[in-house]
Design a protein around this nucleic acid. Structure first.
Lengths: 156, 156
DNA sequence: TTTTGTGCAAAAGTTTTGCAGATAT
DNA sequence: ATATCTGCAAAACTTTTGCACAAAA
């Protein structure tokens, strides 16, 4: 069970746009794809593939893993979805935010928070000077959040 | 095939110390453990579990996955080894460096470089002010290295 | 009607687990 | 002597793939 504190504000793509985005590539708008997008939008943050399969099954018990994973692949191709990997190595998916940003993850309670531009400016600049072009969507930092780190009362 | 440019200098634990570190906990110093530590020290950077199984098999074809993974667990418990997860979600292991540091990984060629204190100072400070204690060993940033990003000649 | 998508079933790949026998101390 | 380790075999899990049928455009 992972707490998510990522703001819901930075959602990107308008919902109906997806249909046309798919069709313009000769791809199709199916109930299963719609369902998955629904599920993804309902989550605030980073959900594993397996979890998405489960969540889709809550709506339609017939849902199969292959469809979910293949749909995720398609949605990632058209830029609607991104994925990364969690501590345990499983894929974590989320709707692509309007602007890229890094993440800070509490190693104790799992809370995820987005990094601001200011947070990462130094790192981006420092690496940039050495010719390394930072990809903010792949910037992850672990640590202890205020609740877990300061008090002597780690939750888990 | 992953290029590793991590400096060999920041190796931590003296080799013979491990034996006593294990024994002081009632754990044992076995040929298999020694072999794995040898293999790990011979690698410069981040090796997946499966790769380690292979590398150990090069020395001793009898090596089994269970032993390798269980040994890695033990070595991590005593602080000799750390692990993280690569792009593909597989575990990547490395000997714990004397000082913690973040990593920058090229998304094109896979090259890994260590981040300096200066690189991360801003991020650490910025998050620190908000009560988040950064764990440098879990700071990873993706992007394009000079070779892959600047030229119009991405290698892969 | 033709191309794309789905469901099923099975495979692939990494990592974990149970257990009997072997080994370090 | 005895608690710890190893090797084996099989399981657990996530994710991928092949194929025949179904559905979208």
């Amino acid at each position: 069970m992972t707490v998510q504190r990522v703001s819901r504000s930075s959602r990107s793509t308008a919902f109906k746009e997806v249909r046309s985005r798919l069709r313009s590539r000769g791809l199709r708008w199916t109930p299963q794809r719609r369902a998955l997008i629904d599920v993804l939008s309902a989550t605030d943050g980073h959900v594993t593939g397996a979890e998405l399969v489960e969540l889709c099954r809550d709506r339609d018990p017939e849902t199969t893993p292959s469809t979910v994973y293949r749909t995720l692949e398609v949605l990632e191709e058209i830029g609607l979805v991104k994925h990364s990997h969690g501590r345990d190595g499983r894929q974590e998916f989320h709707i692509a935010p309007a602007s890229e940003h890094g993440h800070a993850i509490c190693e104790n309670c799992g809370e995820v928070r987005e990094l601001s531009e200011g947070d990462v400016a130094g790192l981006v600049g420092s690496l940039g000077k050495r010719g390394f072009a930072v990809d903010l969507s792949h910037l992850t930092v672990g640590g202890l959040c205020p609740r877990c780190g300061n008090s002597g009362v780690p939750l888990a």
